[in-house]
């Protein structure tokens, strides 16, 4: 196992950690919006790291660009889809969510936990 393999192994494993964080956040976070945070950020970063680790193993330039293209597609379609889901959740009620805008109130213990 050469040093390049080592680096790509580290990248892939750290990507897996972010995927685990995304799933865990989706299970633990209290409402739709915070779960969307976990989904957009942790999972896209995890995919980016996995793709980067595999890019180091790719033999040719077009393959590298293809992996980058896949990552960018997932990144932007995922962000746009999450924006749409959040907008739908906001326009269709979810009345407690506005209460969270008041910093004095502790928005813990809201509905939908667990």
């Amino acid at each position: 196992m050469g040093p390049l393999d080592m680096v790509s192994l580290i990248l892939v494993v750290s990507g897996l950690v972010f995927f685990a964080a995304g799933s865990l956040g989706m299970l633990r976070f209290p409402d739709v919006y915070t779960r969307l945070h976990a989904l957009t950020k942790a999972d896209n970063l995890g995919l980016g790291l996995v793709a980067l680790g595999l890019i180091l193993q790719a033999g040719s330039l077009p393959l590298v660009l293809k992996l980058v293209l896949i990552w960018l597609l997932v990144l932007f379609s995922g962000a746009a889809a999450c924006h749409l889901v959040a907008q739908r959740a906001l326009t269709q009620g979810e009345p407690e969510s506005e209460a969270g805008a008041d910093p004095a109130r502790q928005p813990r213990g809201r509905e939908g936990r667990g």
Binding site: L39, N44, V50, G78, A81
Partner: peptide, 10 residues
């Protein structure tokens, strides 16, 4: 379901 898409790609 969106999560499965991202994880599926990976």
């Amino acid at each position: 379901a969106q999560l499965f898409g991202t994880a599926g790609v990976a």
